[in-house]
Amino acid sequence: MTLARLSNNWLPSMPSIFDRFFDGELMDWNNSNYSSTNTTMPAVNVKENDNEFLIDVAAPGMKKDDFKVSYDNGRLTISSELKNEKEEKDGEKVTRREFSYQSFQRSFTVSESMVESENIAASYENGILHITLPKREEVKPKPSRQIDIK
């Protein structure tokens, strides 16, 4: 499962639009990563070890109940709903409001043959949503063994 993107940009100062045009991302009409409020998407780190893939989503200030994590036919989707709390008390006048929660959705294609989808787990701690995707036994690295020479 390759989750990193390589850049073929031969001239670092040239805009990356050329890379996106030639690799098809510019014309990706099925992109399901979006934010409904023109804000930035939460940053995501994807790591892999011998036993699992780990996805960390930076989402400080949110609660675990603000997230929805689903898996359907090889697609892992992480989303959060828009919450705009406008509670005002009698006699209060808000002159500036900057508190709000933004809605977003991030989706990842996950190979059914590599991941035990029934054991995907998620937790939220210290502003980071952690998602663990355990690998199937058959794709885990096997220890090396010494072969006798006869």
Rank of each mutant, 00 (worst) to 15 (best):
T2K: 14
T2Q: 12
L3Y: 15
A4K: 11
S7M: 05
S7F: 06
S7W: 06
W10S: 10
M14F: 11
S16W: 11
I17T: 13
F18P: 04
F21C: 07
F22S: 05
G24T: 04
E25T: 15
E25Y: 07
D28K: 05
W29N: 10
W29G: 10
N30H: 14
N31Q: 10
N31F: 07
N33C: 15
N33Y: 07
N33A: 12
S35D: 11
T37H: 10
T39F: 06
T40Q: 12
P42G: 03
V44A: 00
N45D: 09
V46D: 00
K47A: 15
K47C: 07
K47T: 10
K47M: 13
E48V: 10
D50N: 15
D50G: 07
D50S: 13
N51S: 14
N51C: 05
F53Q: 04
F53Y: 15
F53A: 02
L54A: 01
I55K: 01
I55Q: 00
I55P: 02
A58V: 13
A58M: 13
A58C: 07
A59I: 09
A59L: 10
P60Q: 04
P60V: 06
G61Q: 03
G61D: 03
G61T: 06
K63I: 01
K63E: 12
K64M: 12
K64G: 10
D65Q: 11
F67E: 04
F67I: 04
F67Q: 05
Y71S: 05
D72V: 13
N73F: 07
G74M: 05
T77Q: 06
S79Q: 11
E81Y: 07
L82V: 04
L82M: 09
K83M: 08
K83N: 12
K83C: 03
K83I: 14
E85W: 05
E85C: 04
K86A: 06
K89Y: 15
K89L: 15
K89I: 10
K89W: 14
D90A: 12
G91F: 02
E92I: 05
V94D: 04
V94N: 07
T95Q: 06
R97T: 05
E98M: 06
E98N: 11
F99V: 09
Y101M: 15
Q102F: 10
Q102N: 12
S103C: 04
S103M: 02
S103Q: 08
Q105M: 05
R106A: 08
R106G: 04
V110E: 00
S111H: 09
E112S: 10
M114R: 06
V115Y: 00
V115L: 03
E116V: 13
E116Y: 05
E116P: 02
S117T: 14
S117I: 02
S117W: 04
E118M: 03
N119I: 01
A121T: 15
A122I: 00
A122M: 04
Y124P: 06
E125F: 09
I128F: 02
H130Y: 01
I131W: 02
L133P: 01
L133G: 01
L133D: 03
K135G: 03
R136S: 02
E137A: 09
E138S: 10
V139G: 08
K140M: 13
K142N: 07
P143H: 09
P143C: 01
Q146P: 00
Q146N: 09
D148V: 06
D148H: 05
I149P: 00
K150H: 08
